[in-house]
């Protein structure tokens, strides 16, 4: 529980940072602490995309998210490649930890989608752990269908919403 309290402190500190990642809803009125799971560094803090040790490199060059087929939590070959890159990065940059956020598209009931998002996030965690990332650096949560990033009611949007996003935070602060 102490871990979460500290994570909340991190969240407050980061709330002032500019939010550029479309997956972040923490900024702006009514959004402060919209979700603790959004307290990560993917919001465009430090670094440039060309610096391989920067969170920006992780988010943009490696890719912070993997996508899923309808009602599944099976990792696709493309997803596995991205996660290989994420694992490598996390192993190299040992000061970071991550919360993996699972999401679902809107075609499902609320409770089921929360559980499905959890399954997806967990599939990512298990894969990263299988690639050597210490399990203690990874947490899992699910937003179900509550936070779509694409808003149309078509497969082109649904495909983007069925995702698991690896959200980085500083391990040094939360450990």
């Amino acid at each position: 529980m102490t871990l979460f309290k500290k994570a909340a402190v991190v969240l407050l500190m980061l709330a002032t940072a500019a939010c550029t990642n479309p997956d972040r809803f923490g900024g702006g009125a009514g959004g402060a602490g919209g979700a603790g799971g959004d307290a990560g560094l993917n919001g465009g803090l430090a670094g440039s995309a060309s610096d391989p040790t920067s969170p920006l490199f992780f988010n943009q060059t490696i890719g912070d998210r993997v996508l899923f087929m309808v009602d599944t939590s099976t990792l696709t070959p493309t997803g596995q490649t991205i996660l290989d890159g994420q694992a490598q990065w996390l192993l190299t940059n040992a000061d970071y930890r991550a919360v993996i956020e699972g999401h679902a598209d809107e075609q499902g009931t609320r409770e089921y989608n929360l559980a499905l998002g959890q399954r997806r996030a967990n599939a990512v965690r298990e894969y990263l752990v299988s690639r050597g990332v210490p399990v203690g650096r990874l947490q899992v949560t699910s937003f179900g269908k509550e936070r779509p990033i694409a808003v149309c009611s078509e497969e082109s949007c649904y495909a983007q919403n069925r995702r698991a996003v690896t959200v980085l935070s500083f391990s040094a602060i939360t450990s």
Binding site: F4, A7, A8, L11, G30, G31, A32, G33, G34, A35, G36, G37, D38, A39, V99, R110, E111, L114, Q139, T141, S142, F143, E146, R147
Partner: peptide
């Protein structure tokens, strides 16, 4: 307030309390 996501409230049988899911901590 709307500072964090809240979902699916449920009344107690006599209406004195409500159970609901909150994302205050980032975890449901």
């Amino acid at each position: 307030d709307s500072s964090s996501i809240v979902l699916a409230p449920r009344f107690s049988p006599n209406g004195d309390r409500v159970l609901y899911t909150s994302f205050e901590s980032g975890f449901p």
